[in-house]
Amino acid sequence: MDYFKKIFKESIIIIIISSLMGLLSGTILSMNEKIIYAIPIILLILPSLNSLTGDICTVLTSRLTTHLYIGSIPPKVQKSERLLQDFIGLLITILLSLLVLIILGFMIGISTGFNIINPFLIILIIILTTLSLFFCLFIFLLISSIYLFKKGKDPNNTLIPFVTSLADFLTPLLLIIFIIIFI
């Protein structure tokens, strides 16, 4: 049961933190329900937006972990062709996914009769939120996975729960902040 113990031991603390962050996310949403309900399209696409950031970060973490295990990136924070390929690949994926998400979200929003105010500004806010999160989390994940790998821990166990919850927490928070700033 060594693998069981390793997984449990490495994951338990971060899962407690992540559960707290998940509930904080719910609290933020309920405390700002007036803003969210004033722009219902945000509410409609919020689960997908949370998932998109979380998914890309999960893919990035599992890729970085495997790179470190098989030695295709060194356990040092430095530029490399491998990292650049991963960064550009995931950036293109996130941009294409955002395009689909916005088109689908707006189509469903319009068909269900939501009043969409300032559509271009809302699209700008959605893109700004997602890209700023992606850039920050890319750097954070790179540094953290190298640090954890050097300590002999599997970055998958710690970083994926943490970064997904962080994305779930930061996405609505940033959206609300940008809405307050721009609208």
């Binding site: 997984i7 994951s11 899962i15 992540s18 559960s19 962050m21 998940g22 509930l23 996310s25 719910g26 609290t27 949403l29 309920s30 689960p47 949370n50 998932s51 979380g54 999960t58 973490t61 599992s62 972990t65 998958n156 166990n157 994926i160 729960p161 970064v163 997904t164 919850s165 994305a167 779930d168």
Partner: peptide, 19 residues
């Protein structure tokens, strides 16, 4: 209140399991 925490299940449990 519970739902966002439950939806974060994918990141807390399923994501690491899959990875």
């Amino acid at each position: 209140l519970i739902i966002p925490a439950l939806l974060s299940l994918r990141g807390n449990l399923s994501g690491p399991f899959i990875a």
